[in-house]
């Protein structure tokens, strides 16, 4: 679009866009600022310049053992994503390169499992967890999060794998490549970017999951989403400490998220918008 835009026009649009962006980002920014205030400052009215104290961060760790839910979040999100990849990579690979008449139906059916409202299976899952001793365990939640995200993982991988030209595989087979050659020299280099994007998006989704983590954990396996939700009670955290806990909970995922904008569109629309 080689259209001449006057400089004034560009400045006008820039100002408008920046105002909108800052308004949208403001709650996050304000939480970060508040986390650097003392508790007295935090409730002393609107103020964008904190005293840059880190006492709230220290307090959250010393009073609430912040490190434990943080590690639970890491273990649950990364663990469930890796488990899902182990199951999904072969499935997506097979569907992309050896499609049958039913492949499309299978994919659509997998997508349909994602449409099931979580609350519809709250009762059975809760009872199963209670009776099998999975309640408040990391292993139980890891498996559950894996199942929840499996359809998205298969779908994302499938849309990436489909972009790998099948002729390359065929040519390799004609040249007498073994299955092992296929995997090492073709699959791996061409599929790694797609797998990496899928991993990234699913770690984000699992990290932010807040229905099952709240239902199925108390203290032992509680990740950050459940930990922070417990501060909604009146005797919960004060403003600055809540902000510090929140900032630490969202910072890693915010940064990962910025790197995965493109994949986000693709993953969450099941390839319908690219």
């Amino acid at each position: 679009m080689a259209r001449a835009v006057s400089r004034n026009q560009k400045i006008g649009w820039t100002i408008a866009a920046w105002i909108v962006a800052l308004v949208i980002f403001f709650p996050i920014l304000y939480a970060i600022i508040t986390s650097l205030k003392t508790e007295q400052e935090a409730i002393a009215g609107f103020n964008l310049i904190p005293s840059f104290t880190f006492e709230s961060y220290q307090a959250v760790q010393s009073q609430n053992d912040y490190f434990k839910p943080f590690m639970n979040s890491v273990i649950l999100s990364v663990g469930s994503t890796i488990l899902a990849l182990i199951v999904a990579i072969p499935a997506a690979w097979a569907m992309a390169f050896s499609p049958t008449k039913r492949t499309k139906d299978i994919l659509m059916w997998m997508l349909s499992t994602k449409m099931m409202p979580a609350v519809a299976v709250l009762v059975p899952i809760y009872l199963i967890f209670l009776r099998t001793g999975l309640m408040d365990t990391r292993i139980g939640l890891t498996i559950l999060l894996m199942l929840i995200n499996l359809p998205i993982v298969v779908w994302m991988l499938y849309t990436y794998f489909r972009e790998i030209p099948g002729e390359i595989l065929e040519a390799a087979r004609m040249d007498g490549a073994t299955l092992r050659d296929e995997i090492v020299h073709i699959l791996t280099p061409m599929a790694v970017p797609g797998i990496a994007s899928t991993l990234l998006l699913n770690v984000i989704l699992a990290w932010n999951e807040a229905f099952w983590t709240i239902q199925l954990t108390t203290t032992n396996a509680a990740p950050l989403s459940a930990f922070i939700a417990s501060f909604s009670s009146p005797q919960g955290l004060f403003w600055a400490k809540l902000s510090a806990a929140s900032t630490m909970a969202i910072a890693p995922i915010l940064i990962l998220g910025w790197f995965s904008q493109k994949q986000l569109v693709r993953g969450l629309t099941f390839g319908a918008v690219k």
Binding site: F25, A31, S225, G257, W258
Partner: peptide, 19 residues
């Protein structure tokens, strides 16, 4: 601008609601 605008999506629901 793009990064600022998409950021809220990465905030987990309990944190967003409590902020």
């Amino acid at each position: 601008v793009r990064i600022l605008v998409i950021s809220p999506f990465f905030v987990m629901p309990p944190v967003a609601a409590l902020i």
